[in-house]
């Protein structure tokens, strides 16, 4: 069969097959909350973003003892419950959040990590327990997932105004070899 296929078409066919199986982005809406989830499975890794509505973020952190000034700025910064899982990558998946890109019409920058937020909150005088809860509820700034099911779930701030649209480029490496997964047309909650 293949020997009858013009050679110049083979790369195109392979690209189409790869694209079909590896980058099938899904979008689902939670009927109860209206939160939208975007998910891809690529290179043996699952990546998903679920909108956390501003009121949900406020409620969570007020309950953890964060001052309202701090929760207000964070809640409006386009926050997602983020899951990254190593299902069947060829080895340990290692990433740094600082290598990821939030690409919108206003430019490209990494998601805002926990350390940056905690620095912004310094003037608000967070208690130790509030600081710990905030730090550890965030998606890890750096992590390594072994194959077969290591994963994390945490909050990720895209740092964009409500209702913005962006692409998230997540980058990781497996034994030094770089990989990336792109979630396209992700929208911030209003």
């Amino acid at each position: 069969m293949l020997h009858k296929t013009p050679r110049r078409l083979i790369p195109i066919i392979l690209f189409l097959l790869w694209g079909e199986s590896a980058i099938a982005q899904t979008r689902t809406v939670d009927p109860e909350t209206g939160s939208v989830t975007w998910e891809i499975q690529v290179h043996g890794v699952t990546l998903s973003l679920t909108q956390i509505l501003p009121d949900q973020a406020r409620a969570f952190y007020v309950n953890r003892g964060l001052p309202t000034t701090a929760t207000e700025s964070y809640a409006k910064s386009c926050v997602y419950m983020t899951i990254l899982r190593n299902d069947s990558a060829p080895g340990a998946v290692h990433f740094r959040l600082s290598d990821w890109s939030v690409v919108s019409t206003t430019g490209s920058q990494p998601p805002i990590g926990a350390a940056t937020w905690l620095k912004r909150f310094e003037a608000d005088g967070l208690s130790q327990s509030a600081r710990i809860a905030f730090r550890w509820a965030q998606f890890p700034p750096e992590q390594e997932y072994q194959p077969g099911g290591d994963w994390n779930q945490g909050m990720l701030s895209a740092g964009l105004p409500p209702d913005s649209e962006f692409d998230l480029i997540a980058r990781w490496d497996v034994a030094g070899e770089p990989f990336e997964g792109i979630l396209k047309n992700v929208r911030c909650a209003k």
Binding site: T28, D30, T33, S35, T46, I83, R85
Partner: peptide, 8 residues
Amino acid sequence: FPVLADLP
């Protein structure tokens, strides 16, 4: 919320 979300 987390219960309703489609968790792995």
